[in-house]
Write a protein that binds this DNA or RNA. Sequence first.
DNA 1: ATCTCATGTAATGTTATTAGTTACATACTG
DNA 2: CAGTATGTAACTAATAACATTACATGAGAT
Lengths: 150, 150
Amino acid sequence: MSGVLHVLLHMAEHDGPSTSETLARAMETNPVVVRRVMAGLREAGYVRSEKGHGGGWRIACDFSAVTLRDIYDALDRPSLLAIGNRSDEPECLVEQAVNRALGKVFDEAEALLLERFGAVTLQMLSDDFHKSMRARRKSTHSKGMHSHDA
Amino acid sequence: MSGVLHVLLHMAEHDGPSTSETLARAMETNPVVVRRVMAGLREAGYVRSEKGHGGGWRIACDFSAVTLRDIYDALDRPSLLAIGNRSDEPECLVEQAVNRALGKVFDEAEALLLERFGAVTLQMLSDDFHKSMRARRKSTHSKGMHSHDA
DNA sequence: ATCTCATGTAATGTTATTAGTTACATACTG
DNA sequence: CAGTATGTAACTAATAACATTACATGAGAT
């Protein structure tokens, strides 16, 4: 999630397609990992990829129409919570009682996460980034991007 | 978490001390695992353990005064969320913007979980279990406990 | 006393998950 | 057709969670 958003915002700052190679360097990982994770976004239509000379990845959506929730869904909804019920459908009535109580709490937390994700668009992230870059430029004249973007 | 609560409720149903051996069978795990996880609860004073003949684990707290939050704390606060920011304190302003947005959402979800944990006492779990046991007994005459409790 | 039983804990082993890598096929561009 | 980039399967490595073994310590029972 974190990594994918990072990549998307970088792509938005970059005219023309970005290669997996380039993106992998920004994310400090391997090009294949980038392709793997971007595959979900491509299926969902948020990015497009092209092969061959001058190929690479390109944004294919309106940043203000796509929320973090959409990205999460495109990523195949990885589990959000680190803990959960020890077992589904236990025989033991004690465990059933525990599961009811914990399950309710977990469901609420998950719902909150999804709701909050749905309230944040990629555009908002991008705006926030640009704001912080302007602020930084005023004080340091730095570009505020990765050194490996050069 | 789930497992610990299961064990605690079982102990409450059982007069006298329960051995790690017995509890492990109910949790379908190893006695050493039980001791390991119970160690935190003992330090917090929620249970007591005794060695030798007739030894084992015993509840040492008032169920209506201890919340799931207390248990969670005693368990050394394992991480609740499965996903997080890729890196703390990144150089990259893009990643900083992503982290701000995601971090806020994660913090909210974690706060919600802790708050909800704080609102549930062990007594409530126990009451819920007894209620479901009464309901079941009416329809099946079963004891509704583990078969391996016999 | 000492034998047995139970916890305490370190060390080790096992398993599952995730991330990373290699290898090679496919497709597009010049 | 040479070169470059994605697509994907297969494999390896790193990590973490869980389980087991081994042995020390302490508390009754005889």
